[in-house]
Design a binder for these strands. Structure first.
Length: 460
RNA sequence: UCCUGAGUAGCUCAGUUGGUUAGAGCAUUUGACUGUUAAUCAAAGGGUCCGGGGUUCAAGUCCCUGCUCAGGAGCCA
């Protein structure tokens, strides 16, 4: 007979007793054991300073020759950048230590000695760093951005979970292009032919919203566009709420409330990280709500009042067209010019029907525009949110599907949503990396996701 | 896909009008040092000047071409 093994097991130390650097202040005066990696080491003869990194923070470990065995001191002198170690010692307050506390080391053991760590404490080029992304994540700046990323995502989930929304995941494999415009990644799907990686979970969210009332999907989106800019990724994360009985006004208000919540959450929970990133906090503190709103037509009027032309590329040459013609989409130069006057994000709504997707609701008062909105961020953050009220009229939707030359059989289920209890409904998509880029002040969107996927990069 | 720019030591860069054996800082190795903050000081090792072709007495440097990368346009979140 086998005795239940839980009775024999004596727990000496649980994982809950492990000490991490971010909690060091709680252990002042006590002996603790820390595990981590050597961030840098500075020697001064019989006195060695090991800067230890454990993922939660950094701590200076002081190793004085007279206080440790000869073997431990020799080991300490042999340490190289990013070697993994275990240290024991007393936590003492010291003004000269980064972080205010240091470890008066009594013992130090090496897990593994690292050799020739590529990322030295000096400047490096973009290409080199991104090739070493798996190691670059250990650097203080990248580490701080990733912690902000985790907080942004938590803020998003808390916001929706606490206001009556249900998380409903949309599929990644789809039979068609959701919006019919973007280039998609394709893959073979058994005997059913070609499948595509989803560029948006929206259409499915519309179905789940009709089941649950208010939903959000949160997952990766894939775009095979050959975009080569500092704000595009081929794989990025997007949160897409979808709400029954919401009109475009409600939609914009929700996007605004979500944005304010995220920024305030990061301000409350990531002070240290924003400091590491040298982010101007006052710019974030200004995000309080009451975002300016402007119709597309008003925005065109503003362009022309301020002599901002349409810039287009014709036969390999940049040409400027003025006045800005109604009906053309804004590009980066127009958006940045417009946003210079605002310190908060701004909504632009009621876009021309021709330049927007087939599922957007036509404005009954003016069929030349659809009830779509973009939320542009300040500080050249670009488009953070794009959304719309959805077309809820069966005939108009079918007309648009035909006009876009989309396969009606693929969209039959989508049309069904307008046959069985169609309701006014709205939703939007928020690009998580764009938001993180804005909040952290990162130079490039590739710094806002652990392993960015870009047109010329899939490793690491 | 188009436009613009870049490629020299492990990394970041300098290299004059084309001229003899291509340099610096950091990193690495060795030595000195009891309070360092990107420690300092001394010494050592480290090069397919992106590949190919051309001009020239002579090419890292000039020309052509290919490759790689970056930024921007378009597209978008």
């Amino acid at each position: 007979m086998i005795k239940a093994n839980y009775k024999q097991r004596k727990i000496k130390m649980s994982y809950k007793d492990k000490v991490y650097i971010e909690d060091l202040a709680k252990y002042a005066g006590q002996e603790v054991e820390l595990n981590g990696w050597v961030y840098t080491k500075r020697g001064k003869g019989k006195l060695q300073f090991v800067i230890l990194r454990d993922g939660t923070g950094i701590c200076q470990c002081v190793v004085f020759k007279a206080n440790v065995s000869e073997e431990v001191f020799a080991n300490t002198k042999s340490l190289t950048q990013e070697s993994s170690i275990k240290v024991k010692g007393k936590v003492v307050a010291n003004e000269r230590a980064p972080g205010g506390f240091e470890l008066d080391t009594s013992d130090l053991q090496i897990y593994q000695l690292s050799t020739d760590y590529p990322i030295t404490p000096k400047e490096h080029g973009d290409d080199f760093l991104i090739r070493n992304r798996h190691l670059w994540l250990r650097s203080s700046r990248q580490h701080a951005i990733m912690r902000v990323r985790a907080s942004v995502i938590k803020a998003v989930r808390d916001f929706f979970d606490n206001s009556g929304f249900k998380l409903q995941d949309s599929p990644m494999f789809t039979p068609n292009a959701c919006e019919g415009t973007s280039t998609l990644f394709s893959t073979k799907y058994f005997d059913l032919g070609e499948a595509f990686l989803s560029q948006s979970g929206q259409l499915y969210a519309e179905a789940t919203a009709m089941a649950m009332g208010r939903v959000y999907t949160f997952g990766p989106a894939f775009r095979a566009e050959k975009s080569k800019t500092r704000k595009h990724l081929t794989e990025f994360w997007m949160v897409e709420p979808e709400m029954a009985f919401f009109d475009l006004e409600d939609d914009m208000q929700l996007a605004e409330d979500l944005t304010v919540y995220i920024v305030q959450y990061v301000l409350e929970n990531c002070r240290k990280e924003l400091e590491t990133l040298e982010r101007d906090i006052t710019k974030l503190e200004a995000i309080q709500g009451n975002f300016p709103r402007m119709s597309y037509t008003e925005a065109v009027g503003w362009m022309n009042a301020n002599d901002i032309p349409l810039t287009k590329r014709v036969d390999g040459k940049d040409v400027e067209i003025r006045p800005f013609p109604w009906g053309e989409d804004f590009g980066t130069p127009q958006e940045e010019a417009l946003m210079e006057q605002f310190s908060q994000p701004c909504f632009i709504y009621d876009y021309p029907t021709e330049i927007k997707a087939f599922y957007m609701k036509r404005n009954p008062d003016n069929p030349k525009v659809v009830k779509a909105m973009d939320m542009l961020g300040p500080e050249k953050a670009g488009e953070l949110v794009g959304g719309s009220q959805r077309e809820d009229n069966v005939e108009l939707l079918e007309e648009r599907i035909k006009a876009e030359d989309l396969d009606m059989t693929d969209f039959a289920w989508y049309v069904d949503l307008r046959k069985y209890g169609s309701v006014p409904h709205s939703g939007f998509g928020m690009g998580i990396e764009r938001v993180i880029k804005w909040i952290t002040g990162a130079k490039h969107i590739r710094e806002t996701i652990p392993f960015p996927r870009m047109i010329h990069r899939i490793i690491p």
